[in-house]
């Protein structure tokens, strides 16, 4: 029996591919104050498991539980919080999960992640210098 998808927050990079392909909008990936929140509304889920096919890191898998019984509506939501990475220069939050940073730096290259303000700040400094010249 194909159940609702099981989410592994250790592997999840918060890319939101699952919420984009979900036919019934049962998965949402939101960004709030330093956290990326993965919400799954099991009551809306139709168990097509198309999200599992499209997950790039294998964080989602087909579960064995088909039904979910709860005594209140809020318990039908599966909510996982993912930590976001911090900017290396100003230690503000950037809108990427820390998993994606470690995932990428282990596989591809070492990245120095900077927040938008720091990157923009650098660009502005360069522009000012150019102007002065």
């Amino acid at each position: 029996m194909r159940g609702y998808p099981v989410h592994d927050p250790e592997k999840c990079i918060g890319c939101g591919a699952c919420s984009n392909v979900c036919p019934t909008d049962s998965i949402k990936v939101e960004e709030r104050e330093g956290k990326i929140i993965w919400i799954h509304n099991v009551a809306r889920c139709i168990r097509c498991c198309y999200c599992v096919d499209n997950c790039p890191t294998g964080a989602l898998s087909v579960g064995g539980e088909y039904s979910m019984i709860a005594n209140s509506l809020n318990k039908l939501f599966i909510v996982h919080e993912l930590d976001t990475a911090r900017c290396v220069s100003c230690s503000r939050y950037v809108p990427y999960s820390s998993n994606i940073v470690s995932h990428l730096s282990s596989k591809v290259l070492k990245i120095d992640l900077k927040c938008e303000r720091c990157r923009l700040g650098n660009v502005l400094k360069v522009i000012e210098k150019v102007r002065e010249l």
């Binding site: 029996m1 194909r2 139709i46 168990r47 097509c48 498991c49 087909v62």
Partner: peptide, 12 residues
Amino acid sequence: CDVLVGNRKMYG
């Protein structure tokens, strides 16, 4: 059907 696709109905 269950053996083939994992669901008795709604094969997806």
